[in-house]
Design a protein around this nucleic acid. Structure first.
Lengths: 253, 253
DNA sequence: ATTTACAGGTTGTCCGACAACCTGAATATA
DNA sequence: TATATTCAGGTTGTCGGACAACCTGTAAAT
């Protein structure tokens, strides 16, 4: 039988069979229901006991599925009331940026490259599709930045909001999601780099020029000039990335 | 008491207190351990019974935490062996994108727009970073296409492989994942549009021109001309998209 | 009419049990 | 001796029952 173990190439076309747990299948089904709008945001799911009977599984198994969806911010369990479909997908983002720090620094570079590509494109596309309401909301976030140059944490939230609005204005849900993701992961690093040095005068200077960059983007979007919007976004992302990069090397050194 | 309900603005600075469940705290602790490299990728966690005693919680609670981390791709539970830290945290990003994209109904147009952006970028980037081995593998897939113009299913696999190789050549794992993901969703549509009409002479004609387009991309990559590679990829994606679009309208009508 | 108390339903947590499965060592076999 | 088989222990996956904490709407008490 030693010969048998010496056979060189067994099967080339084997596909790794995945042992899918029951809760995995439940998760898939619920996500499918949400994506097909059979379960709408804010809607209440049947009780756990009810769902157990429908899915034909025990409560522990069902709960593992529900808890997983809750941790991802897709569902929201409230004691004594029930389990609801999260109405603001914003929570999904919130959850993610909490754990973005898991990625190693090597991948931050990849993220920055990806973000540059994604956001220049969203700026380009948004210039053509943004509605007056979109533009108005962006204006509001810029004013928010201006009024919080000395509160970095709050400033960052307005910054994030602005970029998400641009992505949303493209009306391309996939692009929107991708931007949310990349932004969410990076946000963790950005916030980290903020706490290390107490906000000095140079930070305020940086904030000022950042606001100018955002305003340039907004003006391009308002006038509907796609290529100009792309360039403005590109300039902003590049200077922002350089900033983050500098902070990272500073803290690691 | 009707007056009481008329009070205008109660508290502005209330922060919504949220019940943190036990499993949430366990999740935070485990994530903290991983991010501080106390738990390293590929390492095995203590058994569930053991963890229960250490955390001081019941097994159901602990399992809800572990399962949540597993569906996010951070942990990996194997029956009869134990629970392990996912060796590539890349899976984390992958899983999250997967769940996120699954949430909204995907529009084909959005997918095509995203793909155009992603793949033109990968072509551009790959022209600068592709190794001889990468280029060789791409050449092989093109030859594979040529030898299977009459077997659409096999042809498609070579086609897919080519694009993934381009993405891989960028050495940006995030870009790579995004491309393979968008491609994965589209593949379903493409395969569907293939079975409906029996492969006629026009399909072979289409395959021939598709091969020419791929070869143009490869030549640009070989000569390291980034902008040329981008243009070639753009042309290819556009004609491919038009093709898919035509098929879709044909079948829906 | 307002307040209080309560009953029913819901999620959060724990416990014990069994099935399916993997690993490694002891045993049986050539 | 070398290989194959068996088996025991440990581990995850699933189930059912139980109780605590909690919310809501209704009925009773003031």
């Amino acid at each position: 039988m030693t010969v048998k173990s010496a056979r060189p190439e067994p099967l080339q076309e084997v596909s790794p069979i995945r042992r899918t747990s029951l809760s995995d299948k439940i998760i898939e089904q619920i996500i499918d229901l949400i994506s097909r709008n059979i379960l709408q945001p804010g809607e209440r799911l049947p009780s756990e006991k009810d769902l157990c009977k429908r899915f034909g599984v025990g409560r522990a198994t069902l709960r593992e599925a529900l808890r997983s969806l809750a941790v991802m911010g897709i569902l929201d369990g409230r004691v004594g009331e029930g389990t609801f479909v999260s109405h603001n997908n914003q929570r999904y983002l919130e959850r993610n940026l909490q754990w973005g720090l898991l990625l190693d620094p090597k991948k931050v570079e990849d993220l920055l490259e990806t973000r540059l590509m994604l956001e220049t494109r969203t700026a380009f596309s948004a210039a053509r599709k943004a509605t007056p309401a979109d533009l108005e909301a962006m204006e509001a976030t810029i004013q928010g930045m201006e009024s919080s140059v000395d509160r970095p944490e709050q400033y960052l939230r307005f910054d994030l909001e602005f970029h998400l609005l641009v992505a949303q204005a493209t009306q391309n849900t996939i692009l929107h999601h991708l931007v949310s993701m990349t932004r969410g992961y990076l946000q963790a690093w950005i916030e980290e780099s903020l706490v290390s040095p107490p906000s000095g005068p140079e930070d305020r200077h940086r904030a000022q020029s950042s606001i100018r960059e955002h305003r340039a983007i907004l003006e391009a979007l308002q006038s509907g000039r796609a290529e100009q919007a792309r360039q403005a976004m590109k300039a902003h992302i590049l200077s922002s990335s350089a900033d983050l990069h500098r902070h990272l090397q500073q803290t690691s050194a």
